[in-house]
């Protein structure tokens, strides 16, 4: 998938499904950046055709409702929405 990489401290594998237009997605990104963590993100609304389908299928595995933001930690833990305490807890 055509994701963007953000450098930082490498602790867990962090992947964020986001929309470029969404306020809560921005808040998750700001939180990760304030924590100084390394992560990858993808703006699904900026993808088209097969690329978008691929990202949506990937997201469906952990969040069938296909809502944003969805944060996936170490390919297994999935946090839907901007839930600061849950995110902090999972990244501790």
């Amino acid at each position: 998938m055509k994701s963007q990489h953000v450098d930082g401290e490498n602790r867990e594998k962090i992947f964020l499904f986001a929309l470029s237009t969404c306020g809560w997605c921005k808040k998750v990104r700001m939180l990760l950046e304030n924590l100084g963590l390394e992560y990858d993100y993808i703006y699904v609304d900026l993808l088209e055709g097969a690329e978008r389908d691929e990202a949506v299928e990937e997201l469906r595995h952990c969040n069938p409702q296909l809502s944003f933001p969805t944060l996936v930690i170490n390919d297994e833990k999935c946090i839907v929405g901007y839930n600061k305490s849950k995110i902090m807890e999972a990244l501790e």
Partner: peptide, 13 residues
Amino acid sequence: GRYGYGACPCRLA
């Protein structure tokens, strides 16, 4: 501008 309608910014249109 993108879609021709003001879709919710927090959902995938």
